[in-house]
Structure formats: C-alpha cells, structure tokens
Simulated assay, not measured.
Amino acid sequence: MAGWVLCMTLLLAALAGVLGQLQYSRFLRQHVDYSQMSAQLGLRYCNTMMARRQMTNPVCKYTNTFVHAPAADLVAACSQVPNSNGMYSTTYAMSITVCRLRGGNTQPPCNYRGRQARHYVRVACQRGLPVHLDSTSTTP
C-alpha cells in the first residue's frame, strides 16, 4: 500500500511539473518577444505577431502585451518578494508593445493597433517560472 501511495505521489508531482512547463511555454508564446522584429515590422508588428503566436484563431484576442526582454529577466522577477496580491514585479522597466484589437469584430481577419512603452511587468509565478502576465505599470 505504501508503494502505491509513493507511486501516485511521484506521478502527481511529475504531472504538476509538466503542467507548469506547459503554462510557462504558453506564457513565452503569448508575451515574450526578445527579437528585432518590432523594429523591422513597425506598424504591422501587432497584426503579424498576434497571428504568428496563434492568438487570432478561432477568434481575435482583444488585447495582448509583448515584452521585449530576455525570458530570463522575467524568470528573475519570480525570485522577488511578491506584492499583497501574490504578483511578482520586474526590477526594471522593460520595453513592451500592447496590441489592441481595432473595432469590435472578434472574427478574423484581425486588425490590431500597437502602443509601445517602458513599464515594469507584473507576473504570476509557479515553481519559479512566470505563467501569467498580470499587468504592467510605470512604477515598480
């Protein structure tokens, strides 16, 4: 009986680890773009990135924020002291692009407007990895 309990505990731990990795991978896909793409695409950046990152099918995602910093810098936020809501903030303001859907139609083709800024980024973390972009702010 003890062997069965140990086996189930190990299985559940492994599944939790896999789920955490999947959530982190999804976070990276949806929010991290540390490339020169934003400079190359200019006004078309949001339309291109939202489609490329699979956020326009079957419906257009209304808003999304891309962080233009290394993923490691967002992982580092998870080692900071969380705020009262359990969110972790980056230690410096990062370059971001906020993409918002133009018009009210959420059916493709999607048309986005982008706004660039420098903000601190707040994330939810699990097992030391960011899994949800909570908000951005001009103050830490």
Score class of each variant (00 low, 15 high):
62 Y>P: 05
68 H>Q: 04
63 T>N: 13
140 P>L: 14
91 T>E: 12
128 G>Q: 07
103 G>F: 05
21 Q>I: 01
15 L>W: 09
53 R>V: 04
81 V>R: 13
115 R>C: 12
128 G>M: 04
117 A>Q: 05
111 N>V: 13
2 A>H: 09
31 H>M: 03
96 I>F: 02
75 V>P: 14
133 L>A: 02
78 C>D: 05
122 R>P: 00
20 G>F: 04
74 L>M: 01
62 Y>Q: 13
95 S>Q: 13
30 Q>V: 04
73 D>G: 02
82 P>G: 06
41 L>H: 10
106 T>Q: 09
33 D>T: 14
134 D>M: 06
29 R>N: 06
18 V>A: 13
110 C>K: 07
54 Q>C: 06
61 K>P: 08
38 S>I: 10
96 I>W: 01
97 T>S: 09
6 L>D: 07
65 T>M: 00
25 S>T: 15
53 R>T: 03
17 G>N: 06
119 H>E: 02
104 G>E: 06
14 A>I: 01
129 L>A: 10
59 V>E: 12
101 L>Y: 09
7 C>S: 12
81 V>C: 00
83 N>W: 00
77 A>W: 00
28 L>W: 01
61 K>D: 03
98 V>A: 04
27 F>R: 10
49 M>L: 03
34 Y>C: 04
43 L>M: 01
14 A>N: 08
128 G>D: 04
140 P>T: 09
118 R>V: 03
55 M>L: 15
106 T>P: 07
137 S>Q: 03
99 C>G: 07
26 R>A: 03
12 L>D: 09
79 S>Y: 08
131 V>A: 02
78 C>M: 02
59 V>H: 14
16 A>N: 06
1 M>R: 15
132 H>D: 01
109 P>V: 11
92 Y>W: 10
125 C>A: 00
23 Q>W: 12
105 N>C: 10
133 L>Y: 01
113 R>F: 06
81 V>Q: 15
35 S>Q: 04
52 R>L: 09
90 T>Q: 01
81 V>P: 06
33 D>E: 06
59 V>F: 14
19 L>M: 11
37 M>D: 15
117 A>I: 05
39 A>R: 12
15 L>G: 06
100 R>W: 10
69 A>I: 00
102 R>M: 03
116 Q>A: 14
57 N>F: 12
47 N>F: 00
52 R>S: 13
57 N>C: 13
19 L>I: 11
14 A>D: 01
130 P>E: 01
70 P>G: 11
32 V>A: 07
81 V>N: 05
117 A>W: 05
1 M>P: 15
77 A>S: 10
45 Y>E: 05
6 L>Q: 11
58 P>H: 07
100 R>C: 05
127 R>C: 00
50 M>Q: 01
11 L>R: 10
58 P>N: 02
88 Y>D: 03
36 Q>I: 10
136 T>Y: 01
72 A>R: 15
70 P>A: 06
5 V>W: 08
34 Y>A: 08
13 A>I: 15
65 T>Q: 00
107 Q>T: 15
41 L>E: 00
28 L>Q: 11
137 S>N: 02
72 A>Y: 05
87 M>P: 00
7 C>R: 15
106 T>E: 08
20 G>W: 05
23 Q>P: 10
47 N>E: 02
110 C>Y: 09
62 Y>F: 09
15 L>E: 08
41 L>K: 14
105 N>T: 09
131 V>G: 07
16 A>R: 12
9 T>W: 04
20 G>T: 13
65 T>I: 12
55 M>E: 04
15 L>N: 09
18 V>Q: 13
129 L>V: 07
42 G>R: 05
